[in-house]
């Protein structure tokens, strides 16, 4: 009796709760996309009428394009830096190649545990002290610090979950260390590494506080441009830009979720990968 009641709770209440939460997560994004089509000059939801003018305006406006391009380049460069400094560290730490590897791992994670506003403030004070314009690579390096922890963490997790027997077998068959890395280890972690890169790229692309404190007016990034528009020039064209970003996110999310679906996501019971 109670059992049936409780089963009912799970089968009836959970779907309702999940539906409400899905709506909650989607609401602000859906609303933005909708308002981007309004014919009014101010933001209206539900939109009044239907027009593509705002999208057209945004796509032909060189300042929006420049901001998007700057963000792409800066994010790509910072992820590049993060990969170059992060990958060797992740390999050594995953292999416990040095003493105090776990303390060092913790150390590498520190930038995401510290409120970013503190070290960004410090960077700004530093450049003021040096009396120089913040160079673009200054923003790149600051973003690299923010993204390195994610990259290292992802790569380490992948390396740690690799079966050591794989490597031992290859060694015993006489493969050189280099060959093992190139032919066995790297291909196995490549996907995780790429996922880590992607996550880092998105974080760098979306980051507002770093460029808001550091970037000069000649290198506006997209989040700063959106922020400034929302704060001082709000009109449907900001909603149009936002919609485009939401659209790209949605596209990527759907594709990667489908990718997830195609492969068996469920683990076979009893396989030894449930550890850690």
């Amino acid at each position: 009796m109670t059992r049936r009641l409780l089963t009912w709770a799970e089968s009836a209440v959970l779907p309702v709760v999940v539906t409400v939460l899905v709506l909650f997560l989607a609401a602000p994004l859906v609303v933005l996309v909708a308002t981007a089509f309004t014919e009014t000059r101010y933001l209206a939801f539900p939109p009044h009428g239907f027009t593509l003018t705002w999208f057209e305006g945004v796509l032909t406006d060189p300042t929006w394009r420049a901001a998007a391009w700057n963000s792409l380049i800066i994010a790509a460069m910072s992820v590049g830096v993060a990969a170059v400094v992060g990958a060797p560290a992740a390999i050594v730490l995953a292999r416990r190649g040095v003493r105090a590897a776990s303390s060092l791992t913790l150390l590498i994670m520190v930038p995401i545990m510290v409120p970013s506003i503190m070290y960004v403030l410090g960077l700004m004070l530093g450049y003021n002290e040096l009396d120089v314009t913040v160079p673009t690579w200054g923003i790149v390096l600051a973003l690299a610090v923010l993204t390195t922890p994610y990259l290292v963490r992802t790569l380490m997790a992948a390396l740690e979950q690799l079966d050591p027997a794989l490597e031992e077998a290859a060694l015993s068959l006489g493969a050189s260390r280099l060959r093992i890395w190139v032919e066995i280890l790297l291909p196995n972690v490549a996907k995780s590494f790429f996922s880590g890169l992607s996550l880092a790229f998105i974080l760098a692309f979306d980051e507002l506080v770093v460029p808001l404190f550091l970037a000069g007016p000649d290198v506006p990034t997209l989040p700063v441009r959106i922020y400034s528009s929302v704060a001082y020039n709000v009109d449907p064209s900001v909603a149009a830009v936002s919609s485009l970003l939401v659209l790209v996110s949605a596209l990527v999310a759907v594709l990667s979720a489908r990718d997830n679906l195609r492969k068996p996501v469920t683990r076979k019971d009893g396989t030894p990968d449930g550890g850690a």
Partner: peptide, 15 residues
């Protein structure tokens, strides 16, 4: 869950 995660918090606050 992924779409908001990949969308800048500026955009979401704006929403």
């Amino acid at each position: 869950v992924m779409v908001p995660l990949m969308t800048s918090s500026v955009v979401r606050s704006f929403g």
